[in-house]
Design a protein around this nucleic acid. Structure first.
Length: 390
DNA sequence: CGCATTTGACCGGCGC
DNA sequence: GCGCCGGTCAAATGCG
């Protein structure tokens, strides 16, 4: 026990030391991501500048981007956060497979009944891919670079049970008096059975707990095996909302924060003093937030990083990424037009000392849980080779 | 005082 | 069965 305390203390020290130096870091390069959309709604492709590989070369079957092309268009061009706004609206659309213009995760039909989605980053960028039944994408929604991945662990098969799952959480979990131990066991077993879909963000940030607009209550912290950085556990503070969030820092690249969301908010995006983007809450969102019967109860974490006052130099980053979104190419009808040589600034993947930072993620904790073993091993090998040279 | 965070204890799953 | 590990609980503590 004493040893453990020392260990944790050591970790904390390391972390503090790290944070104290990290803020002096300057961003040296920015990688832009070009989005390529085909005219066929069902074959949206995402492509990154400097990397010609697109999704159809990755997947055996034509797939759709989780974000309809329209999501990348700036419907409200005066809203620099429109992508986030759209993301926030996504839930019901993601859930709908009948809407031809919206993406459906049901569109993924890959071997082994797995759902994969990821976008390539420029060659110097990491290629993250999700574990079986997970979705990984990279959308730098933060002033710092951010990628996200969504875990569909069992989610695809559990969609049917989703409503029950959410309800179960609302009924019990943390908001009702504890039952007897056997009852709790049974309940936990049920919960275990129907695991929530997870959605993970890789974010380059000095801040562990990214402000995504929701209010979170920390309920635990654990040391992560093979990582000097602890993992923090948060729960949405809204009564009845069982959404959880785990935050951990990559041991290999401490500037990378992995935030994993689990579950679906059962309430509209809050209008909190913290989150003025809450004003953007739309009826669609409300629908999504309250419709537990959607075929895919996948929960978009709805990041609000662009507005995060906790984040790094807001002004510079904001100018670089979000504001520039306003100026990117889009057609008059709001559909996104491949900007060609111009970069899709909204997806600028900002990497400080970029080239290898996230490619070398070798995390045996949550990251391991999210990233597929193959990719992990690839990146690990990369790292290992590098290390071997030393 | 109310709420959030901290942190040791506890529990279940899993591998050996 | 035992130990390890991830996840959660809940009392203590901190903070505005």
């Amino acid at each position: 026990m004493e040893k453990k305390i020392k260990e944790d203390h050591h970790q904390e020290q390391q972390r503090e030391e790290l944070n104290s130096t990290k803020n002096t870091e300057t961003t040296t390069s920015t990688h832009m991501m070009n989005l390529v959309t085909s005219s066929d709604h069902h074959h949206h492709q995402m492509e990154l500048a400097g990397n010609n590989m697109n999704l159809s070369t990755i997947f055996d079957t034509p797939i759709s981007s989780p974000f309809p092309y329209s999501y990348f268009s700036d419907h409200s061009s005066n809203n620099p956060n429109s992508f986030l706004y759209l993301l926030r609206q996504d839930q019901p659309q993601f859930a709908s497979s009948s809407n031809s213009s919206s993406f459906s995760f049901d569109a993924f039909h890959l071997q082994n009944n797995t759902n994969h989605f990821f976008t390539d980053l420029p060659t110097s960028q990491p290629i993250t891919k999700a574990e079986s039944s997970e979705v990984v994408s990279t959308t730098p929604t933060s002033p710092n670079s951010t990628s996200f991945s969504s875990s569909f662990n069992e989610a695809a098969n559990e969609n049917i049970n989703k409503e029950v799952t959410v309800k179960d959480q609302e009924d019990g979990d943390q908001h009702e008096p504890k039952g007897t131990k056997p009852q709790m066991k049974a309940k936990k077993k049920q919960q275990k059975k129907a695991r929530e879909a997870r959605f993970a963000f890789l974010t380059k940030s000095d801040i562990d707990n990214l402000d995504d607009g929701y209010r979170w209550r920390k309920y635990g912290q654990k040391a992560v095996k093979n990582s000097p950085y602890p993992r923090s556990y948060y729960r949405c503070t809204i009564v009845g909302c069982g959404v959880k969030k785990r935050v951990e820092r990559s041991s290999d690249n401490p500037s990378i924060v992995m935030t994993t969301y689990e579950g679906q908010h059962t309430h509209p995006f809050p209008m909190t003093p913290r989150g003025h983007i809450g004003m953007l809450t739309s009826p669609i969102l409300d629908l999504g937030a309250t419709t537990a019967s959607s075929s895919s109860s996948f929960s978009i974490p709805q990041p609000r990083y662009l507005l995060s006052q906790h984040h790094q130099p807001y002004s510079s980053m904001y100018n670089k990424n979000s504001l520039s979104m306003i100026n990117r190419s889009s057609s008059s009808d709001g559909t996104f037009v491949n900007p060609g040589s111009s970069s899709f600034h909204g997806f600028a993947y900002e990497m400080s000392q970029a080239s290898t930072s996230t490619t070398t993620i070798r995390d045996h904790g949550l990251l391991q849980d999210i990233l597929p073993s193959q990719i992990r091993s690839d990146t690990i090998n990369t790292r290992t080779n590098e290390e071997d040279k030393i």
